[in-house]
Design a protein around this nucleic acid. Sequence first.
DNA 1: TACCTAATTTAGTGTAGCCTAAATCACCAT
DNA 2: ATGGTGATTTAGGCTACACTAAATTAGGTA
Lengths: 242, 242
Amino acid sequence: MPKAFAQSTESVDDYLKAIYEISGGQGKAGTSEIARRLRVAAASVTGMLRKLSTLSPPLVRYEKNRGVSLTLVGQRRAVEIIRHHRLLECFLHHALGYEWHEVHAEAERLEHFISEDFEARIAAQLGDPLYDPHGHPIPRKDGSVPRCIDTPLPGVNAGVAVRISRVSDEDPAALRLLASHGVRPNVVLHVVDKPSRRSGVVLRHASQQPFRVSAAVAARIAVEVLNPPQTATHRARKGMAQ
Amino acid sequence: MPKAFAQSTESVDDYLKAIYEISGGQGKAGTSEIARRLRVAAASVTGMLRKLSTLSPPLVRYEKNRGVSLTLVGQRRAVEIIRHHRLLECFLHHALGYEWHEVHAEAERLEHFISEDFEARIAAQLGDPLYDPHGHPIPRKDGSVPRCIDTPLPGVNAGVAVRISRVSDEDPAALRLLASHGVRPNVVLHVVDKPSRRSGVVLRHASQQPFRVSAAVAARIAVEVLNPPQTATHRARKGMAQ
DNA sequence: TACCTAATTTAGTGTAGCCTAAATCACCAT
DNA sequence: ATGGTGATTTAGGCTACACTAAATTAGGTA
Ligand SMILES: [Mn+2]
Ligand SMILES: [Mn+2]
Ligand SMILES: [Mn+2]
Ligand SMILES: [Mn+2]
């Protein structure tokens, strides 16, 4: 069995992951968006994209001034790293008692350095979990990704009940705040009010005090709408079609 | 609290660890021995030593053609990495079921990337162990090193009872072999025979079949002599002094 | 003392990734 | 069509760490 991805480095992996996350796996990603995510100059990205596209096998398809997309090989590698990341988050949380706002930074480093054996052992010990502590789906070994409902909370109307689907893991402060309000994946909440467009969302648990989250924080939350008297995005996208 | 060792990289850490292991922490290490350990050209070592000695604070003391030694700061960093390595070996063994011949390679990579928090959590979960699965002492957080008896097995005479103190962790095949004979740290064995100087050592457990280990493997084992009718090295070192 | 050899250093390169500054390109609105 | 603007690429450099080949040094031997 030839060692897959002998050419891969921490940097290469980070680029592939960024492209995957921006493009949703299939589509294209732009140079400056990649640069923003990786906190790297745009010129550096151009150089790396050119390189990734001339590897054999190529990890990306790249035409200048036209964006990049992952090849199948690139996709597989990206998904592999994302699996490492999310399994590590689960492991840190469940086996080592990390809080959910602490897991991301540690996983972000370790994801590049654990062996396939380590991956397999923590997956087995955790019972092959499908979602990480933030609700993100964990890609399976075969590359398939568990289904995950993704409606952005800011698009949901007042009066609707929602199940928290996932919360972005990159802002520890927001995670700490949300945890203090009992906002976690799978928790059911009611959208009480949306005062002004940009001043956030008021939520409450079953029959408790309502609380407000800022627009910035709300934008980091995705939900499943349980009680569908329509969301703003539904209305916008589908028109009156139902 | 200023972040200690911001200047440290995986490569730097590996050099410090190698120098520490060669010099025993205090003494000097030579360029080519370092090169051998790190599987790097001697010229590369010279370059790195020069660099490490001109950092501020310097991590090594270096005079050309005269060898290097660690400064106190360099020693602290080396011990820190060794603590990571050995704690990781314990963790992989006890928490994830790795066999003792599997832990070294994984720990060797991860030791550079775990956070101080990760270190603290696994240490606590393991109950602050003093020795790793091969019997190597785990440096404490304060830098002190648990005592470890270190008589080389090849220097022990026939007829003597020994407690296995530690076994080098770098040769997985040897570890597998030894495990199959029940040779582990703290196990008590009898040295039955030492046929010829270079053909190994015959050992046996309490009252079981004797077995032979090659000279190469025996050289990787350190023991505590329990039943002191003198070892070869004692005789050599102390003369008739007792 | 003169020499030999092994250890070590110097000199010159190479690769991976990053950076800034200066083009150039794509696209959109006049 | 034209010009502007932001996105992107090119050009030129830099740091870290490796390598090979060619000196040089240290230490022991004849
Ligand atoms: Mn990463
Ligand atoms: Mn996550
Ligand atoms: Mn080890
Ligand atoms: Mn540490």
